[in-house]
Design a protein around this nucleic acid. Structure first.
Lengths: 213, 213
DNA sequence: ACCTGTTTTTGAACACTGTTCACGAAATCC
DNA sequence: GGATTTCGTGAACAGTGTTCAAAAACAGGT
């Protein structure tokens, strides 16, 4: 075999992603990878420490792709001269929805994976890729005339992301397929509309602890 | 053994929940359950069809408890004569946060479980329990002076739930523990504030498809 | 009491997991 | 070309979930 070491690593990752995408987390089996990649079981463990290591690597690629999709959507709008905040936020959310739909198995697997390990050694490279997304959203927010201080804008960006994420993920735990898409779209539109109107009214979002004990 | 059949079933469920709560999904092992319950492996499969069946049953109990927590929070506010929408929504969100914190392993396990099975045969009793939650939120929204039609209020309730859910779940995938709680609180406060302000401004939330293609 | 038919419980067996590691093959160096 | 280091291999190990023939417990009936 005249395959570079790194090249077979990429091959394994591609195979692993297909397996995850088709059958979810418990479809990622060492023997299947080895068979489909034309190598032995042990070699998989030579290239990656664990099966978890393989999954982690696949997840990194997924996050990179998601970030690229978001950036591409923004670049597309910029090129078309569209600066409207509402349209930009809807485009970002739409990019996320399409991304999830394009990865029906591997994206849920990423989420399930993060849930399985109660935050061990992985957060560094992981959240770095997420921060990239938050900054895209924060940039869009900075384009509006909301006059938010940096800290509040940061929180708002993360809140928007978390909310869209929640809408999409709980949406796909639901009923049929067409009802899902429509429900998700409506929730996202309402969220974005309400968010913009709410931020426009200005005022302070002081972090005063007034939670009823 | 003088234990009723249904009684040992409850015992198994209690043990299973502890296992899930302590070690996540892959800590739910048939042999461990059998040993701790004082029965044999086969008996577990006599009481439940699968290990997935056990997990499903535990999840149902969790959802019931969550619904009860929400209802209790509302009843508490009512008894104290508090009808303010903001306070009620914050109380609901707080109840959810506390619930998740009180079930640090079994609740993530529920979410991971729902992700593993791409929506198979379970939606009936499952979503029924969630609808109960949505109606609590919709009831709170109906108490405000937003003048929303029933359909929009339904969507708004689900959007709020999904958003809080997203905030909490992505929040706990993050860094340390104290930073998490603070970040989650701030996001929830901003979400609720923005939501109320946005809904107050009235206007139509028409579902016109203006997504950029 | 005893036998009979039914139900329930059991735990040994099976098919699969992830993971390791002694063993050879292949490459690299001097 | 021999020595040394690196790398791929697949058989072996320790666990999984799940099944199912047999054993045990039980329920009547005479």
């Amino acid at each position: 075999m005249a395959l570079d070491r790194e090249e077979t690593g990429e091959r394994v990752l591609a195979i692993a992603e297909v397996l995850l995408n088709e059958g979810g987390m418990d479809n990622l089996k060492a023997r299947t990878i080895a068979e489909q990649a034309g190598i032995s079981v042990g070699s998989v463990y030579n290239l990656f420490s664990d099966l978890d290591g393989v999954h982690r690597a696949v997840n990194m690629r997924l996050l990179d792709r998601l970030g690229a999709a978001g950036a591409a959507a923004m670049a597309d709008l910029s090129q078309r001269g569209i600066t409207d905040v509402r349209q930009r936020l809807l485009a970002l959310a739409g990019a996320y929805v399409r991304f999830v739909e394009a990865h029906p198995g591997s994206w849920p697997a990423l989420l399930a994976f993060n849930r399985r390990r109660p935050t061990l050694t992985e957060p560094d490279a992981y959240e770095a890729r997420l921060d990239q997304l938050f900054e895209i959203i924060a940039g869009v927010l900075a384009g509006g005339d909301f006059d938010l201080d940096d800290d509040t804008r940061r929180i708002a960006a993360r809140t928007l992301w978390s909310s869209v994420h929640g809408i999409v993920t709980s949406g796909y735990a639901g009923r049929s397929v067409r009802r899902q898409a429509d429900e998700i779209d409506r929730q996202i539109e309402l969220l974005v509309a309400v968010f913009i109107r709410g931020l426009e009214r200005g005022g302070t979002f002081a972090h005063a602890g007034t939670t009823a004990s």
